[in-house]
């Protein structure tokens, strides 16, 4: 009940500050529309028929980072206007406070992912695995957004102000994005670069999302591995966020 109350309030904040949706979707949308059109021509040479469909999973992860990062900003705004303190002294569980805000970021991510998918339709992107694939993609998007949102929540409570927070988030997001299979297949890579890309958990998320979009068959083992990986990561990020929130009152 508390979670829904806080979620409802946070969603209201998001729609009141609708520009945060526009800003966070702008860059992935430019990648989707412009970059995929430009790079698509050269990618045909290496066997990628629809580069927009190929790049969409990476952009789903990128858009999740954008939406969830702005959720971390909410902590700074709430601290500035005093409502952060008011909620902490209300009879509400700390876990509900974190969960309400994390779920708001998940809702925002879904809105942005749906917009991206609708735009992708104009570039002949379809989900090869049908309804089951759509369900699994939704599950992966939920877990990815939940993990990132927990992470950004914790980071925002570690850093003193939103300027440093934004700088740190940029320093995290771009290397993660480029050191993954978001833009190129990793088949031809070798050495340290390949190890780094394989150590990036988002590489595996992107690969499974890509397989669900492009290939007709679902490789259960890969899906289960990524779901379990994300569940563990969600547990860690949520626990860290909760720990940081509790530390707010242990000055």
């Amino acid at each position: 009940m508390d979670i829904l109350t806080l979620l409802h309030r946070d969603i209201k904040w998001r729609f009141h500050n609708a520009f945060t949706i526009v800003i966070t979707i702008l860059q992935p949308m430019l990648w989707l529309v412009l970059y995929s059109a430009v790079a698509g021509q050269s990618m045909k040479g290496i066997g990628i028929a629809n580069y927009t469909a190929f790049v969409l999973p990476g952009l789903i992860v990128l858009v999740s980072f954008g939406a969830c990062s702005s959720s971390g900003i909410m902590n700074y705004l709430m601290k500035a206007d005093g409502s952060f303190y008011r909620i902490l002294i209300a009879p509400v569980k700390r876990s509900s406070i974190v969960l309400g805000q994390v779920l708001e970021a998940v809702v925002c991510t879904f809105i942005e992912v749906i917009i991206m998918c609708i735009v992708s339709l104009f570039f002949s992107v379809t989900i090869a695995t049908g309804f089951t694939g759509v369900f699994l993609i939704a599950l992966l998007v939920f877990l990815t957004a939940f993990f990132i949102s927990g992470l950004t929540y914790a980071i925002s409570l570690c850093l003193p102000n939103e300027v440093i927070y934004e700088t740190v988030m940029n320093a995290i997001v771009l290397p993660i994005f480029f050191l993954s299979t978001a833009l190129f297949p990793a088949d031809g890579l070798y050495g340290g670069l390949k190890i780094a890309i394989n150590l990036n958990p988002f590489t595996h998320v992107i690969n499974v999302l890509r397989a669900l979009i492009l290939q007709g068959n679902i490789v259960v083992r890969d899906v289960v591995f990524v779901v379990l990986l994300l569940v563990v990561m969600c547990g860690i990020s949520f626990s860290w966020a909760l720990h940081r929130l509790k530390k707010e009152t242990a000055l």
Binding site: T5, R9, W13, G82
Partner: peptide, 25 residues
Amino acid sequence: CVAQRTSIDTHLSLKENMIFQSKLY
């Protein structure tokens, strides 16, 4: 507690602020 600085959610209306508070409690 009414803190030194007002702690109203400016993205909510007057009634929404009061309803939110009542739901919290």
